[in-house]
Amino acid sequence: MAFQEILGYSIDELNEGDKATFGKTITETDIYLFASTTCDFNPAHVNEAYAKGTFFKKRIAHGMLTTSLISNILGTILPGPGTIFVSQNVKFLAPVYIGDTITAEVTITELNREKNRAIFAAQCINQDDVVVLKGEGMIMPPKKKK
């Protein structure tokens, strides 16, 4: 396998306005695996009896789990393999429940070709078109030999 073949888009191949999406139904398994990976067993995520007494009424997904779908796009689709995450800024706007289907969307908004840095805007939308998360961030797209 040639190293260059699996690389994502380099900064010269990207344009402002480029967009990619990734959708996933958030399962109970995702939430429990995420809880064990991060050791975050906040009862709001893993305790149904407790969650009934919260504002949300049932277990919600970890916000960081939803954010991670953005990381999926960056690392596998746009710019894709070889991309390095530099920084991120996120606001959680609505809860995500078990069984919700979340579509993450990343749009390239700014390119600095000399420094190999790209700024992106991101959002996650549920099956009812409610925006559950909004954010932006900076990445380094993969470099390709000319």
Binding site: I6, F34, T76, P81
Partner: peptide
Amino acid sequence: QYAGITGDVNPVIVD
């Protein structure tokens, strides 16, 4: 596990 949950299999991480 994280790669499995998120689908983020960037080769920088898994290859």
